[in-house]
Design a binder for these strands. Structure first.
Lengths: 220, 220
DNA sequence: CGGAGAAGTAACTGACCAGTTACGAAATTC
DNA sequence: GAATTTCGTAACTGGTCAGTTACTTCTCCG
C-alpha cells in the first residue's frame, strides 16, 4: 500500500527517535514525489522537500547525491509502483470483452488515482526522457499491460468477437492515450469546456465513452 | 504564415536599425515560445529569451511587464494560431467518413508540426491552467473543430453510416487524445518501446491506427 | 560505560536570476 | 536641427537556491 499523497512523514517523534534509514529514505522520496509533481524538476525546491519529509537536506544529499539523483529515483519508483499494480491484473478467467473493459477501467482509474505520476511523466518528456534513457534500473520496462492485451486480443479473435489484424502495441497506446490525456489536460480542458472534469460524474462519462470507442472499434 | 521554429530574429541589422515595435515584439514572442517550450515556465531564462530575440531585456519588460505576462501572451498567441488553422478547415463538401478522416489527419499533423504547443499546454496544466483561467482574451475558446465534428456526426447519422447517440464533446476529446498523447509522450514511449516514434513511418502507422479506431467505433 | 559512527541542525557559500536603472544612441516630429 | 520619444547596453540589486560544512546529538554495540 503506497503512502498517502499528503506525504506526512512517519511518526518518529512520538515513539522517540530511532535509526531508521529506510524510513527516512522513504519519507524523503514521498515528499519529493509531491514536490516534483507539483512544480516540475526546475520548479521544485530541495529545501521544501527536506522540510516536508521531516528530515533534512543533509540526508537528501547523503542518500541521493543531488537533485537530479533524487529526481531519477522518484521517477524509477513511480514506474515500479505502476508495474506492481499492473502485475496484479488477472483477466485470464474473464471473457475477452469483459477483460478489455476491466483493463481500460484499471488504466483510467490508475491515472485518476495517481496525478503525480502523470505530472512526472510530462516533466520527463519535457526533458526528452533524458533521465529515463540513462536509468540502469529501467531496462525491462515493458509494461505488463502489453502482455495482457496481447492475450485478450488473441482469445477474442479466436472466438470471433474481435476483429483481426490489430497490433497490440498500437492498441495499448490507444488505451493509454484515452486515460492519460484526459487527466493530463484536465485543467485546460475544464477551462475550455467550462465544466469541472474532475467530478466523478464527468469521469464516469469519459470512461464509458472510452470503453465504447475501443470495444466499438474491436467489433469484427 | 508563422515564423520558423528556430526563431531567428528578423534581419534588422542588415537594413540598418529602424523603429519597428511590432517586429521587435514578435521577435521576442517567437524567442519566448522556443525557450518556454524547451524548459517550462520556471526553467526558462529571461536573459536567454532576450539574447535569442535579438532584442534585450528592457524591451521585454517594457512590452510584457514581467515573465508571467510574457508567458500568458505566448500562450494566448499559441491558441490563436491553432484556432486560425482550425478555422480554415472545410469539410462541408466531403462525405462524413472522408471528413472525419481528414479531421483526424489535420489534428494529428498539427500536433506533429507544433511540438512547442504541446509543451506549452503541458506546462500550463502543471500550473492548473491558472494563467488560462485568468486570461481575458481567451473566453470564447471553444475550438472550431467541435462545430465541424458536430456537423459531420449529424450528417453521418442521417446517412446511416455513423452510429447514433455519440456525444460530440466526447468524440472531440477522443480525437484530441489520440493525436496529442502520442506526441506529448513521444520520448518516454520511444524509450519504453525501444523504437523511434519520431520517424515518419511510425507516425503514419500511428495515424492510420487512430483513424481506424474512430471510424471503427463510429460504424452503426 | 564509552567509543564510533549515524543522524540532525543551521549557518554559510557561491552562483544564478528576475527585475531595475542610468545613460547613451538613434530616429521621428515639428 | 532641436526637441522628444524610442531603443539598446550593461552594470547593478536583492533575493533565491543548490550544495557544503562545522558542530552537536543521538544510537548502537561491545
Amino acid at each position: 500500500m503506497p503512502k498517502s499523497k499528503t506525504a506526512k512523514p512517519d511518526a518518529r517523534k512520538t515513539t522517540g527517535r530511532t535509526r531508521q534509514p529506510d524510513v527516512t529514505r522513504r519519507n524523503i522520496l514521498d515528499a519529493a514525489l509531491v514536490e516534483f509533481a507539483a512544480k516540475g524538476l526546475s520548479g521544485a525546491r530541495v529545501d521544501e522537500i527536506a522540510a516536508r519529509s521531516g528530515s533534512n537536506k543533509r540526508m537528501i544529499y547523503e542518500y541521493f547525491g543531488n537533485k537530479d539523483g533524487l529526481w531519477l529515483t522518484v521517477l524509477e519508483r513511480a514506474y515500479e509502483r505502476m508495474r506492481e499494480e499492473e502485475h496484479a491484473i488477472d483477466v485470464a478467467r474473464m471473457s475477452p470483452v469483459e477483460g478489455m473493459r476491466y483493463l481500460m477501467e484499471f488504466n483510467f482509474k490508475f491515472c485518476s488515482r495517481n496525478p503525480e505520476f502523470i505530472a512526472l511523466l510530462n516533466a520527463e518528456n519535457l526533458h526528452k526522457a533524458s533521465f529515463l534513457k540513462n536509468s540502469k534500473k529501467i531496462r525491462e520496462l515493458y509494461t505488463p499491460l502489453l502482455v495482457v492485451i496481447t492475450d485478450l486480443l488473441q482469445r477474442g479473435q479466436r472466438d470471433g468477437v474481435f476483429r483481426k489484424n490489430v497490433d497490440p502495441v498500437e492498441l495499448y497506446t490507444t488505451i493509454a492515450a484515452l486515460g492519460f490525456f484526459y487527466f493530463s489536460n484536465i485543467h485546460t480542458l475544464s477551462t475550455i469546456f467550462g465544466r469541472n472534469l474532475l467530478s466523478p460524474k464527468q469521469q464516469k462519462t469519459r470512461l464509458d465513452h472510452s470503453i465504447a470507442v475501443v470495444l466499438g472499434y474491436l467489433r469484427p
